[in-house]
Structure formats: C-alpha cells, structure tokens
Amino acid sequence: MKSPLSRSVDEITGSRRLRRMRKSAWSRRLVQENRLTVDDLIWPIFIIEGKDRREPIAAMPGVFRLSPDVAVKEAERAAKLGIPAIATFPNVENELRDQTGSHILDPQNLINRTTRAIKEAVPEIGIITDAALDPFTSHGHDGILRDGVIVNDETVEQVTAAAVIQAANGADIIAPSDMMDGRIGAIRDALDANGFQDVAIMSYATKFHSAFYGPYRDAIGTGGRLQGDKKTYYLDHANSDEAVREAEQDILEGADMLMVKPGLPYLDIIRRLKDELRMPTFAYQVSGEYSMIKAAGDNGWIDGEKAMLESLLAFKRAGCDGILTYFAPEVAQILKG
C-alpha cells in the first residue's frame, strides 16, 4: 500500500478539484455566496450648527461635520446613489450641554431641525436618530450622572421622551445607543401611545465597551470630557452569551432590528444573533475601524479600497442585513460604477 506522501494529487483528491470554479472571473461570480449591494448601506453623518459649513474631522480623514443645509445636500446625494438611510449624530455647542443632557428634549435642537430639513427635501430617504444623551451631557456619558453613578430609570425616562420628540420631527427609526435596561420597552410603549406605531426601533442590542470609539467621540465633541468609563452599562467585550441575552431582552421589549457595535471584532456575535434569533441584524463599522482602514490606505500600507470592500463583505458573510459605515457614499459610487 502506498503511503500518502507517495500518492499523486489525483489519487488523493479524485475528482474533487475545488479550484475549478475559481479559474475564471465568470465562474467565481457564478458561485459567489455573498454580495454587497447599495441596499446594505446606512450612512452615519455628523451635524453642527451654522450654515454652509463642512468641517473636517482630523481623526476621520474624509469625514466632515456638516451644517444642516449641507447635510440636506449630502442626503440628496445619498438618495441619488441609492443609499436607503442615513443616521444623524449632533455635535452641539458646549453651553447647551449639562449634567442631565436636557437639551435633547428641545424640539428645536440641532438633530430635530436637521431631521425636518432632510425630510422636507429628501422624503424618500430613511432617517435614523439616536436618543442617547452623550452628545448633550457635560460629562460625556450616555445617561444621567448622579453621585458618580449613571442612574438607569431616570435616564430611560428622558431617553423615551427624546425618542417621541424625534419621531414627531420625522425620524423613521429610533436607534437608542445608551444600553440602559428597559429602554426598548419604554420607547415602544411611548411611541405607540403617541401615534407613532409605524416608527421602528433599531436596538443597539450589543454595544460593547470598546477602544474603537475614539474618533467618534472627537467628532461629537465628547472626547475630552468623559468622566470615568462606560463599563457599567456597555457590554464587556469578553462576553458572548451576555450579548445574546441582551438581544433577546430587546426583542421581547419590541425591537424591530438588532445592531452589533463595533463591527469587525465582533463578527462572531453577529453570526450568533442571526443564527439563534433570526432577526434583522445590522453592524456598525465604527469610527476606529474606519480610521484604521483609511489611514493605512492613505499611507500605502494596504490597498484601501480593496480592504474597505473586503471588510464590508465580511459583515454580509457573518449574517448582516445591513451595515452602518462612513464609507457608504464611496462604496455606493463604486457599486454603481
């Protein structure tokens, strides 16, 4: 009997030649298991006060803070590219920030005015708003801070009131990122009671305590003001079962969609949620992920465009129905081209 080392490749593999379908571009396309399309993209944008302002964000090359009028133009561009939805995040003026984030309850605040302006000009694009308090607090936390503790129930009450106001100003999806217990159920009940039964909830069901949020915090102006950390309410990045329990709870409370944040370091979480819960599942390719790919590409260390597309297809392979990504307009243009 021949040893395995003395046998030919044909004898070992028989007719099983897996490379056959990789030989040509047409055959690779024919058997490709996952595809990225423009329908998979949600574009997060940052908003600032003023007019005709496009302010670069140093930590996120190619990303800008936009005044509401410029945000409207960018929403028009996104709609023409076929991007289904945008998610808006405000950088409010310092004098409007306080210990409780009370400015989030102002119907005339930056995020609500921007939503109204976009909806009036580009009604066909979806608008996703975040009811979390961190852009509005003086301490940079996502909740109300009392004696060094983020108080859960008082925060939920304020986040819920903010969600109703955002819906009244035209938000199509409320995506609360604060990770307070019970927020999804409270928001669902309040939306329904106020006539917003058709406004959906995208739950930041598994938002992990992560080192990848730094550029985002610079973008919304909370980078230097955070007191302590967010470990008491964000998920421990060592935990997978806890992430599933969080998502299950949010589904029971009325979430329409689940989100995993950050993205690439948590592909295993995306796969578990999709396999076990079978809900519409999204990932947020966060600022740190964007900046790493962008910086490495700009420095010639990697092929930035190929790495960008590969990273987004990885989300689809893991089970995502869509991806929040700052690359959205660039990717949409490539896919259209």
Rank of each mutant, 00 (worst) to 15 (best):
K2S: 11
V9P: 02
D10E: 13
A25M: 13
R28F: 06
L36T: 07
T37L: 11
D40G: 00
D52R: 13
A58D: 13
R77A: 14
I83P: 01
I83D: 12
A85P: 02
I86M: 14
N91T: 01
V92A: 11
N94L: 13
I104R: 03
L105E: 09
Q108M: 13
I111D: 00
R113E: 14
R113P: 00
R113H: 01
P123K: 02
P123N: 07
T137G: 11
H139G: 04
G140T: 08
G140E: 02
H141G: 04
D142C: 11
G143S: 11
G143W: 12
I144T: 06
L145G: 09
I150D: 09
V164H: 10
I165H: 05
I165N: 03
A168M: 14
A171T: 12
I174W: 10
M179H: 12
I187P: 01
R188H: 08
F196K: 01
V199M: 05
I201K: 01
S203T: 11
S210R: 10
S210Y: 06
A211H: 10
Y213K: 04
P215W: 04
G223S: 13
K231V: 13
Y234V: 08
Y234W: 03
R245C: 03
Q249S: 02
I251Y: 07
L258P: 07
K261C: 01
G263N: 05
L264F: 05
I269T: 15
K274P: 05
K274F: 03
E289R: 03
Y290G: 08
S291W: 02
I293D: 07
W301L: 15
G304W: 07
G304Q: 12
E305T: 15
K306D: 06
A307H: 04
S311M: 06
G319T: 03
E330A: 12
V331S: 05
K336V: 03
